[in-house]
Every structure is written in structure tokens, then in C-alpha cells.
């Protein structure tokens, strides 16, 4: 059982070239910010190292930070043997949203990553089958981006002219 603070210390000793920070909001739980190019390496250590043993990836979520023009991916890990949890977060710029896939480490990431690609448009490099999952393959745009405007017609079928926010007004 390790707290995020202890984990970050171990990581800091392991990767001395990066500065590891534990971020948190005013409420809720803290998370570790991981640089995009390190995520796969870090994940592997977190899964296999005897100190961590994060054997399950509970959740993987894509986020869109419209103010910073950044995309994010949050990883929630849990260890069934050591009973500790951890949240990781990767943030990449909107123009080049490339993050290495962790599908080879936790199989469950396969569909979660496809969903993040489908919904916010994060590109997971070396994912074996990065297709849209909930929307049709030829859908335009990424629905969960804050600036998303639905296409008006899909194969000639109107999708409803107004967006949800307009209807609420």
C-alpha cells in the first residue's frame, strides 16, 4: 500500500531527467502528471514492479481542455494485490495529440483508447486497431470536444440542426 506521494518519490528516483509533480484540485483526488513520451515506460514499471503491482487499469478517459487548447488522457490504476490506487494524466497539444498506447500493457485499454480517439480525438500511436468505436467510421469531428459542432447531414440524413446547447438556451 503506497500513497501517491510515495509513488512519485520512487518515480523521481527512477527517472531523474524529468520533474515529477503531483497535481490536485481543491477537492477530489490527486494525480501524477506524466509526459506523453514516457507513459508507456512508466505504465510498464507501474504494472510489473514489485513495489507497485498495478495490475488493473480501471478507467481511461479522454478530456478536452479547451482553454489551454490541450487534450488530456486520465489513467486510473488499481492494484488488487497491494490495494493502492493511482491516477495518471497525460496532456498533449491539440495540434499534435499523439500518445503512446498502453494496450500492450493492459488489454482493457484497447477499447478505452478507441473511445478516447472517437470522442476527443487523441491519437494513440501503435494501437493495433484504432478505429472509431461508438460513432460510425465516417463520422466527422470529435463529439466530446468543447467546441464540437455536429455535422448537419450524415449520408443525407439530417442530424438535427440545433446543437444541444442551443436547445437549452
Amino acid at each position: 500500500m503506497k500513497t501517491p506521494e510515495e509513488i512519485i518519490e520512487i518515480l523521481q528516483n527512477r527517472f531523474t531527467d524529468e520533474e515529477w509533480i503531483l497535481e490536485s484540485g481543491q477537492s477530489g483526488l490527486p494525480w501524477i502528471r506524466v509526459p506523453a513520451n514516457k507513459i508507456k515506460e512508466v505504465s510498464k514499471i507501474l504494472r510489473d514492479d514489485a513495489e507497485f503491482r498495478f495490475d488493473t487499469l480501471m478507467c481511461l478517459s479522454g478530456l478536452h481542455y479547451s482553454a489551454e487548447q490541450e487534450l488530456g488522457v486520465a489513467y486510473h490504476l488499481h492494484s488488487t494485490s497491494l490495494k493502492h490506487s493511482l491516477a495518471l494524466k497525460v496532456r498533449v497539444p491539440e495540434e499534435k495529440p499523439e500518445i503512446p498506447s498502453v494496450e500492450s500493457i493492459w488489454k482493457t485499454a484497447d477499447w478505452h483508447e478507441r473511445e478516447a480517439w472517437d470522442m476527443v480525438g487523441v491519437q494513440f500511436t501503435d494501437h493495433p486497431d484504432l478505429r472509431r468505436i461508438l460513432c460510425p467510421d465516417d463520422w466527422e469531428g470529435y463529439p466530446l470536444r468543447k467546441d464540437y459542432v455536429p455535422q448537419e447531414f450524415y449520408h443525407g440524413v439530417p442530424t438535427g440542426e440545433k446543437t444541444v446547447s442551443e436547445q437549452n438556451d
Binding site: 484540485g25 477537492s27 477530489g28 483526488l29 480501471m58 478507467c59 486520465a74 486510473h76
Partner: peptide
């Protein structure tokens, strides 16, 4: 109006782990 922050809460639904990841 929750304070700024985020969390992941999971419960045992009949089908398994139902998690909500909420960012405020």
C-alpha cells in the same frame, strides 16, 4: 457547485465495477 478538482469513484453494480470519473 463543487470545488475545482476531479475524482474517480467506483461502486459495485450488478455487472461489475461502475466507475464515475468526474471533473469539476
Amino acid at each position: 457547485r463543487p470545488k475545482e478538482g476531479e475524482l474517480y469513484v467506483r461502486t459495485e453494480s450488478p455487472r461489475g465495477e461502475l466507475g464515475y470519473y468526474i471533473v469539476s
